[in-house]
């Protein structure tokens, strides 16, 4: 039986090895912030971090994950919705329906972990998640805002409260 470390907690994966990580997270672990959108790694709604890399959990088999791999879902990104990306998203009112935003936030957080000040081109390359409401313009602005740091975030939050 595989063992999975999700948000710092190790769990037994009592499912067939070919079960997608997404459905293990949603149906066995019960964390529903990670979304099903396409099942074929196209839309990114199911994005999670595995050892700091953003991955599409719908297309990763539970059996291919090692017990030492550290999986982080949207619920584990921060304890109090305080990650700079989450704060920037709030400051600019990025979400519309919100369904894809867990994945968008996880993709943005992974980008900023590697690239402190991403350019528009960096964002274009890294942010390939689909949003049907069309929040792309605000996502771009929010990634830049998150990259600017705490003081910019605080200013932006106050500007529109």
């Amino acid at each position: 039986m595989a063992k999975l470390n999700i948000n710092g907690r190790v769990r037994d994966a009592n499912v067939p090895n070919d079960t997608p990580l997404l459905w293990f997270i949603r149906e066995q672990v019960g964390l529903t912030g990670t979304k099903y959108g396409c099942g074929v790694a196209q839309c990114g709604a199911c994005s999670v971090h595995i050892n700091g890399e953003v991955q599409r959990s719908c297309s990763i088999r539970v059996g291919d994950i090692k017990a030492t791999d550290k999986i982080v879902t949207i619920e584990g990104l921060s304890a109090t919705t305080s990650h700079p990306v989450q704060q920037a998203w709030a400051a600019l009112d990025v979400p519309q329906c919100g369904y894809c935003q867990s994945g968008q936030i996880m993709a943005a957080a992974a980008l900023l972990a590697k690239t402190k000040k991403p350019t528009d081109s960096d964002i274009d390359q890294a942010m390939t998640n689909i949003c049907r409401c069309g929040t792309y313009q605000r996502i771009r602005a929010a990634v830049h805002l998150a990259a600017e740091g705490r003081s910019a975030l605080n200013r932006a939050s106050k500007a529109r409260s």
Binding site: T32, I74, E75, Q86, A90, G98, R160
Partner: peptide, 23 residues
Amino acid sequence: KPLKRLDTAAKLNGSKIYAIDVK
């Protein structure tokens, strides 16, 4: 006025329950 949405917070941390998430 360009006020912020009232329904954003739960969309940022996975806590919003859509119908597909019902348990």
